[in-house]
């Protein structure tokens, strides 16, 4: 395979919002968007980390109105298009309509891997609005391959043009990715995507496995800026895929410049694999719980790892950030 056969979707300005405690400034968004567009990235995502309407005490209030940020990013696009994330139960259809007015051209409607049926009305709206419409199965490690196929078929039946296998906890190993993507490839007609997290240092290997199994949309973020230990690092992914003989359509130097000259200077901390993010990958905990767990551990004087292991045992799903404080309080009472 020597021609471009997939799209790289950059999530720095959405997944990175978790690592930035939802405080991206208009300037940071403008410069990052400009860099991504200039490098040739076709799609990139801008939203609160928990999607449209995510600004809340539960997940963190946005320092700047996400609609303004979407507008700023869209304004920088010469060839790229802005995607937004929408998690039904958090965001609503009106949020998507507003995002489209602000310039969004793509929507990714995300549900927990077993709950695709809450997204029917949002996916239908995405199509109605003429958006590139994607179904995003979060925490895909928590379901069997059969279940993922069943849920992907639901998304496809509602009108999704792409269905994502999303490793929200950074728990999957390459063979898990290969199995799931291959099964989807055989069972659904729409395109397949993969979104990785690096909690076990597997994001790149998983992304390569996804592409080799037939994924045609893959996610990355500059300098890996994202929840937990971050995502597959976009600029590294471009280099790796080029080495493997794929044409990414992205200018390596320009994407490196966006990563190192624009994003790196505003990162609050490096995206290294810390004890806590390692435990997340090991026990399958939603990556955006990381910073909330830091806070809760300090407030209640308990070990972050104990909180995370308990959350894994309780099978917490994405969005249950309140449970972190509940668990920490419970652990403190026991100690």
């Amino acid at each position: 395979m020597d021609k471009k056969s997939f799209e790289i979707l950059d999530v720095t300005l959405r997944d990175g919002s978790h690592a930035m405690s939802h405080a991206f400034t208009p300037q940071q968004v403008r410069e990052t968007a400009r860099g991504l567009d200039a490098a040739g990235v076709r799609y990139f995502e801008v939203s609160h980390g928990d999607g449209l309407g995510g600004s809340s005490l539960q997940y963190g209030l946005s320092a700047h109105d996400e609609l303004k940020l979407i507008e700023i990013a869209a304004d920088e696009c010469k060839q790229a298009e802005v995607s937004v994330l929408l998690i039904p139960g958090i965001g609503v259809k009106g949020d998507l309509q507003n995002a489209v007015k602000a310039g969004a051209k793509m929507v990714r409607v995300a549900t927990h891997v077993t709950e695709a049926d809450v997204a029917a009305q949002h996916i239908a709206l995405g199509r109605e609005l003429g958006l590139k419409t994607v179904g995003f199965l979060m925490m895909s490690h928590m379901a069997t391959t059969e279940k993922i196929v069943e849920q992907a078929k639901l998304f496809e039946s509602y009108g999704a043009e792409v269905v994502y296998v999303t490793d929200s906890a950074g728990y999957m190993l390459p063979q898990d990715v290969t199995e799931r993507i291959s099964a989807l490839k055989q069972s659904i007609g729409c395109e397949i995507g993969f979104h990785g997290h690096n909690n076990l240092s597997m994001a790149m290997a998983n992304t390569v496995a996804a592409v080799q199994a037939g994924a045609t949309f893959i996610d990355g973020s500059l300098r890996a800026l994202g929840a937990g230990s971050g995502n597959t690092q976009t600029e590294v992914m471009v280099a790796v895929l080029e080495r493997l003989g794929y044409q990414t359509g992205i200018d390596l130097y320009k994407i490196m410049d966006a990563a190192n000259d624009v994003v790196a200077p505003f990162m609050p901390r490096p995206q290294e694999i810390t004890g806590s993010s390692l435990v997340m990958g090991y026990s399958g905990v939603y990556s955006s719980f990381l910073l909330h767990t830091n806070v809760a551990a300090k407030r209640f004087g308990v070990d972050e790892r104990d909180i995370l292991v308990e959350l894994g045992r309780m099978k917490a799903v994405g969005g249950q950030e309140d449970l972190i404080y509940d668990v920490a309080q419970g652990l403190a009472a026991k100690n």
């Binding site: 809340s56 005490l57 539960q58 139960g89 958090i90 927990h112 077993t114 709950e115 809450v118 928590m142 309780m314 099978k315 917490a316 799903v317 994405g318 969005g319 249950q320 309140d322 449970l323 509940d326």
Partner: peptide, 23 residues
């Protein structure tokens, strides 16, 4: 006011939990 709903498929099923955050 703002409301968020989350569905959790864990087995055995989880008891309903609610959190109120107020300013």
């Amino acid at each position: 006011g703002k409301a968020i709903i989350i569905l959790n498929p864990a087995e055995p099923p989880v008891i309903m939990r609610d959190t109120v955050n107020a300013l």
